[in-house]
Design a protein around this nucleic acid. Structure first.
Lengths: 184, 184
DNA sequence: TATTGTTATACTCTATAACTATA
DNA sequence: TATAGTTATAGAGTATAACAATA
């Protein structure tokens, strides 16, 4: 009395959770995160630090806040991240001549060098995670993820996907008597 | 002097991070996580609670520990999760007749009902996240993720991907003078 | 008055260690 | 002695709120 996510073959034992999108996405993400973590372990801030460093080197963000929003982190976290990266001599905070409240971000030479190395390692980590696929399928997966991510990011760089579910929650009938704090 | 991830077209401003696999994967994952969070917000333990409930209903795990390992969570976390789910009357811990240390897990009727509803909502959340793709591309993406996840999960249900990077770290030349605590 | 960035504080999540009851 | 489960404690990561400087 519930269509169950329909296991691919139906013969294997212990399917259940394993058959769904969320599970697969989570496994792949955590696996990549683990590899990426190891790849950039020496960098203050880990993978997040990498994104900040990469943005500083290539996007030359106009302010800490702008970068924080672009990466979907709190602006206070950005402060800590930059403190550590600057202490390590990888990025610099420079005053914005146009707005003395804001700070421009740039990568030092040392930062750019390190970024090169990290890029190479991350590429290897990525290929390790995608080990199950041949090059053609990897390209396809990368492309599809890119399309989804781009749209999601365009719709709402950080939040999104959340309001929708409020509608979903209203639409779908609850098992009666169980409908706790919605504003939680 | 560094091959840079090669922006797709090369004309757009502010590419950088946006062009890489890790970024796309992270955006998609967080977006789905947010939607899933909202979809199962009323369930103790959120998405993790859902996975436990689903496993209890469909896999009938032989022990808490077995399920914890299958889901990649600490066994202490499993205790908290089950405490809350049991308190809500959704799952039951029953003594394993074969091993009086272990507990069998089953979903209550109330739990199965709720699971139905949540499955439906998660399906909607998933489709919302994949809004950029037509049905055919969604199938492709699901299939590819499934293949990658299955292999990753088979190689190492929890860890994996980590040792590899130790090799990577050795292989790749560091910018000299910068090679902090490896055992961190 | 609103905004950028910083600091201090509190909260959540997760992991660690110690304990029990079984095997 | 080793294992399943629980509990208590500590740590990392994150968010909240208050503040200073500037717009």
């Amino acid at each position: 009395m519930c269509p169950e996510p329909a296991p691919p073959t139906g013969a294997e034992p212990a399917w259940g959770v394993q058959a769904d999108f969320g599970w697969a996405l989570g496994v792949v993400f955590r696996s990549y995160l683990k590899a990426a973590n190891a790849a950039v372990a020496e960098l203050p801030g880990g993978p997040r630090g990498y994104q900040v460093l990469a943005a500083a080197a290539r996007d030359q963000p106009r302010s800490q806040l702008a970068l924080a929003q672009q990466l979907g982190v709190d602006r206070t976290v950005m402060t800590y991240l930059l403190d550590d990266l600057e202490k390590a001599g990888l990025v610099e905070r420079r005053p914005d001549p146009a707005d003395r409240r804001a700070r421009r971000l740039t990568a030092t030479e040392s930062g750019e060098e390190l970024l090169c190395t990290l890029d190479r390692r991350l590429r290897l980590a990525e290929e390790h995670v995608l080990g199950a696929l041949d090059e053609s399928d990897r390209e396809t997966l990368r492309g599809l993820l890119q399309r989804v991510a781009t749209q999601v990011d365009a719709l709402d760089p950080v939040a999104s996907a959340c309001d929708v579910v409020n509608d979903i929650a209203d639409e779908s009938a609850m098992p009666a008597g169980r409908r706790p704090r919605t504003g939680d």
